[in-house]
Amino acid sequence: MLKQLIVSPSPHIHSGDSIEKKMYGVFVALIPAFLVSLLYFGLGALIVTAVSIASCVLFEFLIQKFLIKGKITIFDGSAILTGLLLAFNLPSNLPVWIVVIGASVAIGIGKMSFGGLGNNIFNPALVGRVFLLISFPAQMTTWPEPGFFPVTYADATTGATTLAMMKAHFGVLPSFVSMTLGKMGGSLGEVSAIALILGFVYMLWKKIITWHIPVSIVGTVFIFFTIVISAHTGEFAVKFPLYQVFSGGLLLGAIFMATDYVTSPMSKKGMLIYGFGIGILTSVIRRYGSYPEGVSFAVLIMNALTPLINTYFKPKRFGEVVKNG
């Protein structure tokens, strides 16, 4: 026999989608890049990633348990994802204690101080990374030479990134093939373009993100460097702009960092403008700034502008502006 019926306002069905599904979807998309980093940076990559994830989750738990005294949501996947993305932005030979500091800043300042998931203005992983970049510039810009599942790194093999080489006009640039495969110096998650693009395709297929932000960022950077370099050298340049796109954290930033739901605009138009802004800022920092890499700063600056973009670029309303007929 029936007990009491449930009454609620419509709709009465739900898509079954959840925050966890979205977060773990991104997680899956990051697996190829993680495998590549394991291959090239070996044990170091594993340690940095594990420590980063564990300390992000731990800090979130501690803050929710003892400071906020609210609900504990460490299993919604967002802290794990922040940890993973933070690790991807760190060199694999970074001392463990620095990783822990980065995680505490990412979760404590970047996320929980704003009120937790959904309320943060800046991408937590990038807040952590930029904090470390400014506080520990030496450790953060020394990368080990990629090997084949190395267990330890000799100090001497630390090498400069492609971007630094391009900026300083020294050294032999890695071949294009080894760049797309990831055999170059860099933070542990950013090296392999192919793995990152694989993740991008997966997220598009699973409808976790749309193409707007990544494509507009990469497109802007490519066009910027094509124009600037062509104007500089007097002949049409393609190779250098392509190196710009495939090196450094651009793809990681464009595909995984800039597309963070919480800190990116909501309308398609807003997404394109946001992506364009990140692209321009990244290019300007790379070309004219003192840092060889600018994706993190560009994303954080555009994060701050996201509420403004949301206010001014709302989706087109039904029956508004659209020409009838």
Partner: peptide, 17 residues
């Protein structure tokens, strides 16, 4: 109680339903 309300816990929403 004769039924179980499962909507948003808000009197205005519940009473308009």
């Amino acid at each position: 109680r004769t039924n179980y309300y499962d909507g948003t816990s808000n009197c205005a929403i519940s009473s308009s339903l």
